[in-house]
Design a protein around this nucleic acid. Structure first.
Lengths: 238, 238
DNA sequence: ACTAACTTGCACAGCGCTGTGCAAGTTGTT
DNA sequence: AACAACTTGCACAGCGCTGTGCAAGTTAGT
């Protein structure tokens, strides 16, 4: 009975719900407007501004909560993602990101300015490292473009991916459409033709793309090797 | 003598210089922080906040000035840009944008939120139309990807271009490097392989890329047709 | 050298935001 | 039923920003 450990009394149930509501509201509000007021967040959560301070000591504390949650969700989502073929690896990273669009958006928005910048950068570092590594491998393998510095290319892929996430949400694409787009545009920026990128995306089993509602840890199947080492499957279809 | 038309006296020379300094300062400051204070702008311009109000009635008026200037610069830069080959057209648009990075950045930043949003959208509309058109033609020609809605693809290209401009400035690329990157990434997102994109970029005469300091109207030579209609020049060089 | 144009510093009102204290409610828990 | 946890509204101080008035400077044009 872990409840009896707290001397005064246990925290109330609906209070926790409200806390969650606040965080969720902050996520949706800050996604568009990182500088939005706590009034806006409270309204979105259906509470009063005053009561937010019952859960978070300050605005920054709320931000920090959002940040760490988003960061850990993304890193756990990416934990199992790896593939020896850098093209597939990039596609898988894209798919994983797509499963966490909400979180990614909030993080990316918050990354713009202020003291949060460093924390956001830390949170996203695993993703960046993963992409950088795949880019390096893809370049030496001769699949990705070698006429730009690899770090630059990695950053471009990252920014393109975020742009795609935005656009996918904006255009209200379906889950599979969005996932596919994130994967293929990333590969396009990396240097592949759209047919090759599509071939990579199509070769991936759908189960690897969107494992569930993205809530359960869902044992992310280690994708075998659905693509021949170097041959672009389809030649040049219209 | 047009001076004698104004009864009291002519505006002073250094006052105009200061006005320019304010606008320039606003451009550099707002490029990073669209919400920066007028104090910051004044500091950048080497003036006092108070004197800004001697030139602009309000913050919004200064913003409006920035906006219209940027918009018109971009549209005149794009006025002469056209090519029947949509790939070349896209590349040329990219090059033209590169010549006006500063302006583009300011506009893109200002586009984020607020009442300026509509005005910015208007200012950028010619660019958008140009890109949309090229995308449509490229898709029907079979060069660009046809697995995404053309409007979506156009927007993705646009956003990718802005991301590249950012990164190019950030990574401190040289003029030709930056121009080349903007062009090729746009084409990559459109669907070309990086080799094909590079071929398009290389086929363009350097004079068409950065016509000058981007200040003079510089008769933008109508690029003939340096690329065969349908053949990707180099096949697959590493 | 004189005048008008311009800049500057200061003071002030106003606005929207954050964060806090408090008193009065409402609601979960026992 | 009773108590603590929680929410709410209000009032208030503080901060940083915008926009304005004014008086004292400085500087360009004549």
């Amino acid at each position: 009975m872990p409840e009896t450990l707290t001397p005064p009394r246990a925290p109330r149930k609906d209070a926790l719900e409200n806390r969650e509501a606040i965080v969720a509201a902050a996520a949706t509000v800050f996604r568009h407007e990182p500088e939005a007021s706590l009034d806006a967040v409270a309204a979105e959560a259906g509470l009063s501004r005053r009561s937010i301070y019952g859960h978070f000591a300050s605005r920054d504390e709320l931000l920090a909560e959002l940040l760490t949650r988003g960061g850990s969700r993304i890193s756990t989502a990416l934990a199992g993602v790896h593939h020896d073929d850098p093209r597939i690896h990039l596609a898988l990273v894209g798919a994983a990101l797509w499963a966490e669009v909400q979180q990614v958006r909030v993080l990316a928005q918050l990354a713009v300015h202020g003291p949060l910048e460093r924390t956001v950068a830390e949170a996203l570092e695993p993703v960046r490292a993963s992409v950088r590594d795949a880019v390096a491998r893809g370049v030496t393998a001769g699949w990705f473009r070698d006429d730009v510095a690899p770090e630059t290319l990695a950053r471009l892929i990252e920014e393109a991916a975020i742009a795609v996430l935005d656009e996918a949400v904006r255009a209200d694409l379906t889950e599979p459409e969005g996932a596919r787009l994130v994967m293929t545009i990333g590969l396009s920026v990396a240097g592949l033709s759209w047919q090759s990128a599509a071939a990579v995306a199509d070769a991936l089993p759908a189960t690897a793309i969107t494992p569930a509602a993205s809530s359960a840890p869902a044992p992310r199947a280690a994708v075998s090797s659905p693509l021949a080492p170097a041959a672009p499957s389809r030649p040049l279809a219209t």
